[in-house]
Design a protein around this nucleic acid. Sequence first.
DNA 1: GTTCGTGCAAAGACTTTGCATTACT
DNA 2: AGTAATGCAAAGTCTTTGCACGAAC
Lengths: 149, 149
Amino acid sequence: MGKEPDVNHVYQRMKDEDVKMTAQRQLIVKLLVKHQDRHPSADELHQLVRDVDPDVGLATVYRTLDLLERLDLVQSLNLGDGRARYELASGVHRHHHLLCIECGKIEEVDEDLLGAVEEAVLSRAGFTVVDHELKLYGVCCACSPERGP
Amino acid sequence: MGKEPDVNHVYQRMKDEDVKMTAQRQLIVKLLVKHQDRHPSADELHQLVRDVDPDVGLATVYRTLDLLERLDLVQSLNLGDGRARYELASGVHRHHHLLCIECGKIEEVDEDLLGAVEEAVLSRAGFTVVDHELKLYGVCCACSPERGP
DNA sequence: GTTCGTGCAAAGACTTTGCATTACT
DNA sequence: AGTAATGCAAAGTCTTTGCACGAAC
């Protein structure tokens, strides 16, 4: 339990917002939850959708992702490969991403590590931080030579 | 002096790398230095270029930016508006960006505020950070209601 | 004189949009 | 029934690429 995003939570939010619950939207949400770790692009998600229902169009995937993003149920990421990637929103702040420059694996850091940074920015620049996005590029545990595979 | 990127530093690096110094490249570098604070997109930079030499093509701007990025003289940013933006590289690490959600102003934070964060990630996830990119969304000094304009 | 860079236009990738049809409430 | 969502295809952006010409070393 807790604030982990799950299918029911998303469905409930959509119901509260009076958006129509279509088979396509249900499927898209289900697959977003199922493949949370994949950070799929719209196109990748569309492939997953088509494996279940080949009639769903790519535009519907885009429109549903836009809808979910407006409802703060999904956030889009830019992981540097020229296309938007999507993940379920996990709370007030985004979580951080560790991008391994060796193997390309994407890990997540859920804790908010930036409290001190945000305070520093406020006092030095008078800038009040509301949200943040942090990408850390480096070498993951498995690729690290000292801990080798 | 110091590590601030300037025209001569960039020219020297290009000379060292045996890339040809063309009028177009000189102009592009000059304008990148002149408009450092603008974080121009390729297209915006192209407009600036054309104000001086209307014959320069957009493809040349893209190719020059790619070249400079490969030489670590420029880094591309994703500030969330769907196009790549560019700035001169300023050292080992990228600096951070403060994006005001009210007025859209982009400020920069040069200090490296993430030392503690990177240590935490290393010890908790065994991930060795090499570079990072941090965007802080919030309200800048000028837009802050308490300090009003 | 070679080699590399440039300009142009075409192609490519990702995303958005218009419109007739379909499905939800 | 009325409204909103869908699918398709076309259009829109941003970026890359092929090729002949021109410039740098």
